[in-house]
Nucleic acid binder design. Structure first.
Lengths: 247, 247
DNA sequence: TTTTATTGATAGTAATACTATTTTTTTAAG
DNA sequence: CTTAAAAAAATAGTATTACTATCAATAAAA
């Protein structure tokens, strides 16, 4: 099987020494995923990580400058993994609607692991992305991080989605926003279903991912429908545009 | 004018002593907004806040148990302020489409301040919600916070939106997810436009909020359109539902 | 005016986020 | 198999954070 041989490329500015090349490095990645999941990003420290792999703080600093970069490394892993899954699964597909369907399946679902290739438990990685992901790019120094291309993989992931959207609806004006919205909403709805259920129509349990897919399909289909004039709405699109609230 | 007299209710479990009732308390709120905006949530500390208002760390701890609760207090302020603006502006409106329009205007826009009532600069508050907001509910102890009703105002805000959605389309199945998606997407698109422009179709500048509103109207209209069978898509809804990718 | 509540000043602790140094272990090359 | 080089472990140390505690000064209320 090809999928197992795919390797994930990560921007080398994120790390000091490539963690995939050594035993300790791989242990750092493997256990940081487990420990962030267990403790949450705030309570996770290099000292605790060192202890959990029988190593020390100092040794971890030789791989990552700080906790934030290690976390961004994990996010990149996740984004690259999504891209790989999308690419593999759309390889022989020509119909863009089918492609969009597959993309939604991929971003909503982590059931299938690349167990053989690497030491990262992708299901847990997905969970930490859902719970903590936004912290990777919501902070004072995003612009610096962005200049160093730390979010390049996220952009590539969204680009894949944008291309399919444009294939379906060449005149669609909001492809980028729709792409990031699909990804962010997928994660948000999983999180809300589990922790703030009044903010989502989905409920936690066995069928969460199936219902999420169904909902995202529905959203995607509606958004990409040919803009028509006979909307149910009593107010026409033009009315909407000109109407201004008085506040 | 009524708006200036509206007062914002905040869950009293969030604070130790009500900051609105004393001079020092009001200064804490006012300057925490400014300082979080300036430093970011991570670099913001009670010590620095104390220094910036000519007080001490210890005094601030008499109002808030910790930084997180102070931040959640600010989020609640923001959510309550949104609710107030929605309520005031939809007071005499009966058409639900007009109401939805107003809601979108409100969540996309902070141009109009309640300058007279309080000491909080809502424009800056909005900025910190856009940049840091998600951190308030993405952490290991959400469930505890949620049990204490720390997110009640966010839910109320979304409920307002849900009610309007249901008025427009009583059979709509995803009202809650759509409501939270509108709010989250509004903030994300402002943030992306400013920091990760490849993730949004909007661009920063003078017209950001106008374009955001237009986009959100479009999304809302499309999502609430009567599900029809004659979609552009070459694949029917049924095909979408049954089709399964092979990964 | 006196009691009480609030704030300010100061001190102290455990943990975090590092940096630095030195020794031990592992690996790689001759 | 030996030796040199690289990597990791052990240890120590610093500034800052996130608190808690105490006590004096000041403001407010009775």
């Amino acid at each position: 099987m090809y999928p197992l041989l795919v390797n994930i490329k990560i921007n080398d500015k994120i790390y000091v020494r490539d963690p995939r090349k050594t035993n300790l490095g791989r242990k750092i990645i493997e256990h940081s995923v487990l420990l962030i999941d267990e403790l949450g990003l705030e309570q996770f420290t290099f000292k605790k990580l060192g202890a959990s792999i029988g190593s020390t703080e100092g040794s971890i600093y030789r791989y990552f400058e700080n906790k934030h970069k290690l976390f961004v490394y994990l996010l990149n892993w996740y984004w690259e993994w999504m891209i790989v899954r999308i690419d593999l699964n759309t390889l022989n597909i020509t119909d863009p609607n089918q492609k969009l369907k597959i993309i939604i399946d991929v971003i909503a679902d982590t059931a299938i692991r690349n167990t053989e290739i690497e030491f990262v438990n992708e299901e847990i990685l997905h969970r930490i992305v859902v719970t903590e992901g936004a912290k990777g790019y919501h902070h004072k120094l995003v612009d610096e991080d962005n200049e160093e291309q730390f979010f390049h993989s996220y952009k590539r992931l969204c680009e894949r989605i944008v291309n399919v959207i444009i294939e379906i609806q060449p005149q669609f004006r909001y492809a980028k926003s729709m792409a990031s919205m699909l990804v962010e909403s997928a994660n948000n709805n999983i999180y809300f279903a589990q922790h703030l259920p009044r903010l989502s129509d989905l409920s936690k349990g066995e069928y969460l991912q199936d219902h999420l897919k169904q909902m995202l399909y529905f959203f995607a289909l509606q958004l990409l429908r040919n803009p028509s004039t006979n909307v149910l709405s009593t107010m026409s699109k033009e009315e909407w545009k000109t109407y201004d609230s008085f506040y």
